[in-house]
Design a protein around this nucleic acid. Structure first.
Length: 491
RNA sequence: GCCCCAGUAGCUCAGGGGAUAGAGCACCGGCCUCCGGAGCCGGGAGCGCAGGUUCGAAUCCUGCCUGGGGCGCCA
């Protein structure tokens, strides 16, 4: 039980006993630490509905609580503020209990089964700055919910399906036509070793998507390849497995540098088998309808203050979209007992999630007792205030960003003459930890939904409100440990 | 055109009905002959504009200005 909830309980009772609604008993941390530790402003709010002077209400409440052992001084001040100072005995007791509790007094809530979806990297594509905030925020949300006692699964949810996969297959076929994977007569077995590195995939990916823009024959081939992949053509499946494996390895490497871990490495491909039956059912149930050749779900509500465009379920060429897979993913997660799904995804996609959630409700895929939430995040911006771009105009690669922060962390360590007498391995780990702390603290310091300017010098500073300072001096973590070491005390 | 988010100190940001609007950085002035100073104490300076609601507005409402973002076959 926290101090605030204990105190609020006391004042709720008092308000009720004095003849007022108990909701006026909310106690908060004092805004005037020179006057008190806590305060309750309920008397001011109650004055109007009860047509009584606020000071008199406050006085009534105070007279009911002032003899409580938890409280030392309770006074009415100003227009009707109730100022509260705790008794030393109560405060000391409370602190003793916190210290004795490995959870520091944080209560465990009733557990719900939660999926946090906070990854979103694409196969064969380099991760970029856009993946930073979801990773940091999502990981934090996951750990917090877990600490509170929920049953939480972190799902990276890869972009590992759809047209880009067809593009890649065809591009590779043109480059390496002799590979067994492209022999339509073959059904394996195929080599265990991947025919390409992730670097090679990342190189040909943009080439393939450019060709897709320009060459209609390539478009047809890519579409055809996707269909065959979905239908399970052995060579393509084997090739896709390789793409998947080498990509996941590279992606994990980046997340590891940030201490971000996923329980599930699912993706769009995970729900591949659910797509057709789901669409058929939605069509049969009259939920989905045709519009301009495409399949949509009307998600507008009568009392909508704004236009909510329909949820596009299938393109006019009949192909599935990210929307299809997102909806099927909700179905899949719920079928596994998920009670809450939290998406930590760029806030710019909020309309998509609004539509998605409505479609899920309307179709009965998610009933009201399932929580669906888009915890949208803002963007990481460059010095110009716009989403971080490289000189070439592309988004800055995430590994490059982390590299830069680690380099800066190394400089900081040298500037401050720190960690000099460690082995190379330990030093590298210190550098990594300092860099990760810089990035995470710099990010989490900002509101989740607002954009922020990435300032490497500020984030890596060893003084001020920064990650490195938190590691060292904030709650004096490593410094305290060093001190205790010198006096030979075990932690 | 419609919708969403933001505009607070020189800078980056908190605070989202209550008392004197906070932090970090930067700037100025102090503090150590035991601890890791990556520190501590103090100082100046601010709520985009105009109305409204309220005993009380940075906070709620309306309008406007400025910036960013979004608006069915991309994710």
């Amino acid at each position: 039980m926290s101090l605030l909830s204990t105190l609020t309980g006391i004042f709720e009772e008092a308000f009720e006993e004095a003849g007022f609604d108990r909701d006026y008993g909310i106690v908060e941390i004092s805004q005037r630490p020179d006057l008190s530790q806590f305060q309750c402003n309920g008397a001011l709010a109650a004055a109007k509905p009860y047509k009584k002077p606020p000071r008199s209400i406050a006085q009534d409440v105070v007279s009911l609580v002032e003899s409580r052992p938890e409280l030392d001084v309770v006074t009415v001040e100003g227009p009707g503020f109730i100022n509260i100072v705790l008794s030393d005995a109560f405060l000391g007791n409370h602190i003793d209990r916190m210290i004795a509790d490995p959870r520091l007094g944080v209560p465990r809530v009733s557990s719900r089964k939660v999926v946090v979806d906070y990854g979103g990297p694409n196969i064969a594509k380099e991760m970029h700055v856009g993946h930073l905030r979801p990773a940091i925020i999502g990981e934090s949300v996951k750990r917090l919910l877990r600490f509170l006692g929920h049953d939480v699964i972190g799902d990276v949810h890869l972009g590992d399906w759809g047209l880009p996969m067809g593009q890649l297959i065809c591009e590779l076929e043109d480059r390496m036509p002799d590979l067994l994977y492209f022999d339509s007569a073959s059904s394996g077995p195929y080599p265990a070793e991947p025919p390409v590195t992730v670097e090679y995939l990342q190189e040909i990916y943009p080439v393939a998507s450019r060709r897709f823009q320009e060459d209609s024959r390539f478009v047809d081939r890519a579409r055809c390849a996707v269909v065959e992949l979905q239908e399970g053509r052995p060579g393509y499946r084997a090739l896709w497995q390789h793409f998947h494996r080498v990509s996941v390895e590279a992606i994990k490497e980046v997340y590891n540098r940030l201490d971000v871990e996923f329980d599930l490495w699912n993706g769009e491909s995970t729900v591949n088998q659910r797509l057709d039956p789901m669409v058929a059912r939605l069509l049969a149930g009259g939920i989905a309808e045709e519009s301009d050749g495409a399949l949509i779900i009307d998600v507008a509500e009568l009392d909508d203050p704004k236009d909510v465009p329909p949820f596009l379920l299938l393109k006019s060429d009949g192909a599935a979209l990210y929307t299809t897979s997102d909806l099927a993913t909700i179905e899949d997660r719920i079928s596994r007992g998920t009670e809450v799904i939290i998406y930590v995804v760029d806030v710019r996609q909020s309309l998509h999630f609004e539509q998605l959630f409505r479609a899920a409700r309307r179709s009965g895929i998610a009933l009201e007792d399932v929580g669906l939430e888009h915890a949208g995040n803002g963007t990481v911006n460059g010095p110009d205030g716009k989403p971080f771009k490289t000189r070439e105009g592309g988004l800055l690669r995430l590994r490059e960003l982390i590299d830069r922060v680690e380099e800066r962390a190394e400089e900081r360590l040298q500037e401050n003459d720190l960690a000099q007498n460690y082995s190379d391995d330990e030093r590298a780990e210190i550098r990594r930890a300092v860099a990760a702390a810089s990035l995470k603290f710099g990010d989490l310091q900002n509101h989740r939904t607002s954009n922020y300017v990435f300032d490497i010098d500020r984030f890596t500073a060893f003084e001020g409100k920064t990650g490195p300072y938190l590691l060292y001096g904030g709650p004096n973590y490593s410094r305290d440990r060093a001190l205790l070491r010198t006096v030979d005390v075990d932690l």
